[in-house]
């Protein structure tokens, strides 16, 4: 059982049970989490699944992921990730994912 907590910019949080093998992005969509749009469906072509994860267990973003992150709508930080590029495993139980502030 892998629990993942999504935290909105206003601090509101929701903890959900993720399915092994899904990506974090797919998990967010399955629970209709605000702030993850995933327009390209996980092809690393849209950066609308951008989130912040400060946790070594998810490893490092690849070169390609970093290039696409440059095209994200919101502020890119060292903890920025594309949530479609992280697969859910049991090892990630308790992971906290912060959603970006929508910029207008």
């Amino acid at each position: 059982m892998t629990k993942i907590t999504f935290v909105q910019p206003d601090g509101a949080s929701q903890t959900v049970e993720a399915r092994e093998g899904d990506s974090i992005m797919q998990t967010a969509l399955a629970y209709s989490i605000d702030g993850i749009f995933a327009e390209c469906g996980g092809a690393m072509m849209c950066a609308t699944c951008h989130c912040y994860i400060d946790d070594d267990r998810t490893g490092e973003a690849s070169e390609t992921e970093l290039d696409m992150l440059d095209c994200a709508e919101d502020e890119v930080r060292p903890s920025s990730r594309l949530s479609c590029q992280i697969k859910v495993t049991e090892a990630l139980d308790g992971l906290v994912v912060h959603l970006p502030v929508p910029e207008e």
Partner: peptide, 15 residues
């Protein structure tokens, strides 16, 4: 979500 901009690797570059 709609599919006017496609999806996958060819998702519209100009969306």
């Amino acid at each position: 979500p709609h599919q006017a901009f496609g999806s996958g690797p060819h998702h519209c570059a100009g969306a």
